[in-house]
């Protein structure tokens, strides 16, 4: 079965990211396909390359990175991310910002990617904040 996951919560502010990561791992272990993980609302902060948690806390960025390296599509909503200051190189240039901060493995795209996931995955599972 094809699963799509939506994350609405920022890392460390809510449990959404950890729950979504555990669900994603279990779905893959069960032999399902992860069609996409879509980050919306404060969920876009998961795509920041500047997360620097204390060493004795879970490294959420590394967990997303590991998922990406397994070929999972990690998509940050462009409208949500621009508002909140998570920018890739192109967007930083377009808006004349001094730096970009999108973590590797993530891509910025439009809400069409959420709708596409809703239409083409067999199940859409949302982790709210």
């Amino acid at each position: 079965m094809k699963f799509a996951i939506v994350v609405h919560g920022a890392p460390y502010s809510s449990a959404a990211a950890q729950s979504a990561l555990r669900f994603a791992g279990a779905a893959r272990e069960r032999g399902h396909e992860l069609y996409r993980v879509f980050f919306y609302h404060d969920g876009v902060y998961n795509g920041s390359s500047l997360l620097a948690p204390p060493q004795d806390e879970p490294d959420i960025a590394a967990e997303w990175q590991a998922l990406s390296e397994q070929g999972v599509d990690l998509v940050i909503c462009v409208a949500s991310s621009l508002r909140r200051g998570v920018l890739d190189v192109d967007e930083a240039r377009r808006y004349q910002k001094s730096a970009s901060n999108l973590a590797g493995g993530f891509q910025i795209s439009g809400l069409g990617q959420l709708i596409d996931a809703a239409l083409n995955a067999d199940r859409l599972v949302t982790f709210g904040a």
Binding site: M1, F3, H8, A26, L124, T126
Partner: peptide
């Protein structure tokens, strides 16, 4: 249930509605 069973439930039921 564990996360694997959470995944199984998503298959068993036709859709998932989150209340947050």
């Amino acid at each position: 249930i564990d996360y694997a069973e959470f995944v199984d439930l998503c298959v068993t039921y036709d859709k998932v509605k989150n209340w947050s």
